[in-house]
Simulated assay, not measured.
Amino acid sequence: MAYQMDDVVDKWSTAILQLQIEEAENASMSTKKVCGRDMDKDTILGHLLGKNCQQKSGLYIVSIVGTGGMGKTTLAQLAYNHTKVKAHFDERIWVCVSDPFEPIRVCRAIVEALQKKPCNLHDLEAVQQEIQTCIAGKKFLLVLDDVCTEDYRLWEQLKNTINCRASGSRVLATTRNESVVKMMRIAYKHPLGELSPEQSWALFHQITFFEKSREKVEELKAIGEKIADKCKGLPLAIRTLGNLMRLNNKKEEWENILNSEVWQLDEFKRDISPILLLSYYDLSPTIKRYFSFCVVFPKDSVIEIDKLIKLWMA
């Protein structure tokens, strides 16, 4: 099927504009306070900075445990980027682990984070030695985001690599699985629960009514409270719907979301994906196509916008 060049350019421009809008919106929202996690953040900081640490020797591992969409990664980022943490550790390393847990991939990611350049080593032992050289005598914080494996043999390959560290080093792991906590022999486990109704509404209000007029807020507030309540205290669901509703100013559209059949799906009781579907369905047909194309990238990949646009063009 042939396309007129003007049509293709228009579609590229639309997609690029959408990305720019989202980037600007995320930047404006990133400066906002994360609602309802102050006590959680303080507790994690206490263990990372040594105030709540009772362990005298061995690798001190802290975990954040909770179901999907609970905000584990967000909480870990708050701690990782805290000014006191930056000043306390000689090195900070962030690795997205996910599934499957591949020691060589995780170790190469650690080397790249430490050396700030691509790792050209492909032998596990060589990479492990490189890590030990980089962290020798240094106090480091290693964040392992989204650990899924329950295989201690795989974890041991990484654990033995980073055990030769300066006193005061920490590992912060996020996971959904209690079995992972036992397997890693965590020193401190921090369970992350749902936001309270008040915290849920505060977060939803912060995102949804950003730069809306007072009159519009009053018109939509009652519906918004019901929508926030349906999110069951899940921060990701609240943020996703909050950003969706922020772009909708018509009361009828808000009522359609409130009365959507998605809320009745059994999957919502154990998975946040139906909420994400609401956001996806609201996209224009053109943007849906561009968004769907992103499935070609592996999980946790850093997607460069220029490269993505060229792939779209191809």
Rank of each mutant, 00 (worst) to 15 (best):
A2G: 11
M5R: 13
V8F: 13
V8L: 15
D10V: 05
S13A: 14
I16S: 08
I16R: 09
Q18N: 09
L19N: 07
I21Q: 12
E22H: 12
E23K: 14
A24G: 12
S28P: 02
M29L: 15
T31V: 08
K33S: 10
G36R: 11
R37F: 09
L45I: 05
L48N: 08
G50S: 14
Q54E: 12
Q55P: 05
L59G: 04
I61A: 03
V65R: 08
G66V: 04
G69P: 04
A76C: 11
A76Q: 05
K84I: 01
D90G: 07
C96H: 09
I104V: 15
R105A: 00
V106Q: 05
V111C: 01
A113T: 02
Q115I: 00
K117W: 01
Q128D: 09
L144T: 04
D145Q: 06
D145I: 05
D145V: 01
D146K: 02
V147I: 07
E150P: 08
L154T: 02
K159S: 11
S167V: 10
S169F: 01
V171E: 06
S179C: 07
R185L: 02
K189M: 08
L195R: 04
E198W: 05
E198S: 09
Q206L: 14
Q206D: 13
I207D: 06
F210S: 14
E211T: 13
E215K: 12
V217P: 05
V217T: 11
E218L: 12
K221M: 12
A222Y: 10
G224E: 08
K226S: 11
C231T: 01
P235M: 04
A237D: 00
I238C: 04
T240P: 01
L244C: 08
N248W: 07
K250F: 03
K250H: 11
L258I: 00
S260V: 04
E267H: 01
I275Y: 01
L277E: 07
L278K: 04
L278H: 01
S284W: 06
F293M: 13
V296D: 12
I303L: 10
I303Q: 07
E304M: 09
I309A: 14
M313A: 15
